[in-house]
């Protein structure tokens, strides 16, 4: 089980959280205006790296807030978490 560092509550076990996917996926400003390619990329295409991954977590059984964290997807080790809305860390491209 992962030990996840909520920026508001500290380290808590994974079962208190819900995973909410890759972070920093930007919604096109006006979906009616954007190309299908851009919309498909927003909806479906993900980096899915074998390496550092910026991801969203929801502390459903705690403060109930969303936040972002950076985790290495091969070792599952976290290397920091930060409030939603702040810019993401530089992630290496992964293999």
């Amino acid at each position: 089980m992962l030990l996840i560092d909520c920026p508001f509550c500290g380290q808590r076990p994974e079962i208190e959280f819900r995973y909410a996917g890759e972070a920093h996926v930007l919604r096109p400003i006006d979906p009616r205006e954007c190309e299908d390619e851009e919309w498909a990329a927003y909806l479906y295409r993900r980096r899915n790296p074998a390496g550092d991954h910026a991801e969203r977590w929801h502390h459903v059984h705690g403060c109930r807030r969303f936040f972002n964290a950076r985790r290495h997807t091969v070792t599952d080790l976290f290397s920091g978490s930060y409030p939603a809305g702040t810019p993401g860390p530089e992630c290496e491209a992964g293999q």
Binding site: E14, Y19, V74, T75
Partner: peptide, 13 residues
């Protein structure tokens, strides 16, 4: 499991 990973392990729960 709940999260993207390549660890071939997953969580015990």
């Amino acid at each position: 499991d709940a999260y993207v990973s390549y660890s071939q392990a997953g969580s015990a729960h």
